[in-house]
Write a protein that binds this DNA or RNA. Structure first.
Lengths: 225, 225
DNA sequence: TTCGCTTCACTGGTATGGAAGTATGGTATA
DNA sequence: TATACCATACTTCCATACCAGTGAAGCGAA
């Protein structure tokens, strides 16, 4: 038996937290929705305590807001938080792009090309979920190629608010546009042109600057300043 | 009465969390130390439940590790996490420096000069705590000057591991050296030289690249890969 | 001495009851 | 009709009790 496969069942509290987190990220639990310890506990068939602890974890993630003696609510998407995360992403991934353009690790660049192909397929198939996952893997590989895997883990935490937003948008138009930008980034990386790679990445990530305010205006109930 | 002053007492759990967090950051609770729900509860004079919830919050901050049925331990300082946060800081603050060099907001640049003066005082007085706080304010103001206050809040979360490390080091030598680098950054900002400002900031933040491995080697019990 | 087993104190995890605070809708009063 | 009051049904928060897993100490046999 593979010794690395020895694992213990996560606590109920942790499982509830994972379940809630995914549902929030996918927009299943909409921003502003009220959730209750009692109701969730009854729905799952457990006591209130583990649910309560899951709520606390969710609040630490910035995905819920616990108002004492009043209720617990799914956080609205903070425009400021999204723009802040975007700013950080642009700065970090610009540096990553420069590093990768200089190193040019063939294997990983090939895998990035594979992801672009997958994005084409997901686009024509209309599979939003697949597209988003491939998009994330594309950017993740950039961090990998730069030898900065841990950096991507940190970005993932910051992206929490951004991810919810993406599930709300992602129309067909945006997707083909995004694929083109990915291709431009990869081309520059392949040519070892650090300036071009950085520029393409910044252009790509600045796309959000126009999209976010539009989406906030379209669905004001889901957003907060 | 000032309506903005209406406030409610934070929950016991939140207060315990704040208390523990500060003690961990200041190195009062050393990395690897075991903490117990029962002991902390008895020491404060409350039940285990709020303490337990404070532990969960602390674990979300990455400052503690709860091992089921075994015990809860103060996290060791992850070298990888520190280096990752450093990488992100360099990328972000380099961009911030460029923005501020172009805008040159006189008022905030003056306040940054004030902080450098405070750092001189704290250095000669040997007050490590004052020095670290002023250091943070200096960098915080850079974000303010760039109109990206929220970005600094995100960086603060990433800096959690780094802050603990700083309380372990900060010898007299490092401090005067640091002040010189701050001055170089400010000079470049004042002259509106974006390239020089970015370069000075990157040099300043790369200082850690040599310091961190040294400290990890000096006190291996406090660190993990 | 060394190995293996049992025991037991102690850990975090869960269930449950009640305390304190809040919002809501009904009701008496002017 | 409008307003002040209050009963009530929630909410989260805390205390308590019990559960299950862990690991080290103690003991005995090889």
């Amino acid at each position: 038996m593979d010794i690395a496969r020895i694992t213990i069942a996560p606590s109920t509290s942790a499982q509830v937290h994972d379940w809630l987190r995914k549902r929030v990220q996918q927009g299943d639990l909409p921003p502003g929705m009220r959730i209750s310890e009692t109701e969730v506990a009854a729905a799952i068939g457990i006591s209130r305590q583990p649910v309560r602890e899951a709520f606390i974890r969710l609040a630490s993630d910035g995905l819920a807001e616990v108002r004492p003696q009043r209720g617990t609510y799914i956080s609205k998407i903070s425009v400021q938080a999204v723009l802040s995360a975007r700013f950080i992403r642009e700065a970090v991934e610009a540096d990553l792009a420069r590093i990768v353009a200089k190193a040019r690790p063939a294997e990983i660049l090939d895998r990035m090309a594979d992801e672009i192909a997958r994005q084409h397929h997901a686009d024509t198939a209309g599979s939003v979920e697949d597209f988003i996952e491939s998009d994330d893997r594309f950017h993740h590989m950039l961090a990998l190629a730069a030898g900065q895997d841990a950096v991507w883990a940190d970005l993932e935490r910051l992206k929490a608010q951004m991810n919810r937003l993406r599930h709300l948008s992602m129309r067909a138009f945006d997707r083909s546009f995004t694929i083109g930008q990915h291709q431009a980034i990869l081309d520059a990386l392949r040519q070892g042109d650090a300036d071009a790679a950085e520029g393409a990445m910044r252009t790509h990530l600045r796309q959000m600057l126009t999209e976010v305010p539009q989406m906030a205006a379209a669905q004001p109930d889901y957003f907060t300043a």
